[in-house]
């Protein structure tokens, strides 16, 4: 027993092995840190230049006859993106206000409303849209790509993008009145 200890064998851990261990540990911690960072991040913040995305639209809810829209198409207009779902109870609180806001701003051609239907089934989505008489363009969030980009935390959430394509305001949770929407959109329209 004493013999094996007194015979000098390998001393300590070879440097390359230490390097591997530390790189491995650092990698592991880095992944967890990135995950944590992601979990802690909220939605994307105002000031963020929103990159282009494609939204296919439900038939009957097209935009100027197009069955698919790109955010890029609306450069120069204020874009209001509303995330909702038919199974979402709080969404129902704001549905009528959003529609009224659309009726007010839509005709001016200055503002576009887009309803993004977050993980939903089309038949139920249609029932919901009909129930609240919604007419602005609406389409499914295919494979949750758009909601993942905005890092939404739930539905409803509404994002206001200005004429330059920069996010100006984020509403988490439902609107309580038409006034509330106007208070956000009007200053954005005034900004030339």
């Amino acid at each position: 027993m004493t013999e094996s200890q007194s015979t000098p064998q390998r001393k300590g851990v070879p440097l390359w092995a230490q390097a591997i261990i530390w790189v491995f540990l650092a990698g592991l911690l880095a992944i967890v840190a990135m995950g944590l960072n992601r979990a802690q991040q909220g939605t994307i913040q105002p000031g963020h230049a929103v990159s282009d995305f494609t939204l296919p639209l439900f038939s009957g809810y097209e935009y100027e006859g197009k069955s698919e829209v790109h955010l890029e198409d609306f450069r120069g207009k204020v874009v209001v993106i509303n995330f909702w779902a038919s199974w979402c109870k709080p969404c129902e609180q704001e549905a009528a206000d959003l529609q009224r806001a659309w009726e007010k701003y839509g005709p001016t051609g200055e503002v576009v409303f887009l309803g993004v239907d977050y993980v939903d089934t089309e038949p139920n989505a249609r029932i919901y849209l009909k129930k609240f008489g919604i007419t602005y363009p609406n389409g499914p969030d295919v494979a949750t790509r758009i909601s993942q980009y905005f890092r939404i935390k739930g539905v409803p959430e509404t994002y206001f993008i200005d004429r330059e394509g920069v996010l100006q305001y984020v509403q988490v949770g439902p609107f309580s009145s038409l006034q509330q929407i106007e208070n956000i959109v009007d200053p954005m329209l005034a900004d030339e």
Partner: peptide, 9 residues
Amino acid sequence: SGVLSSVHA
């Protein structure tokens, strides 16, 4: 910490 449930954190 909510790391695992990023949507509903």
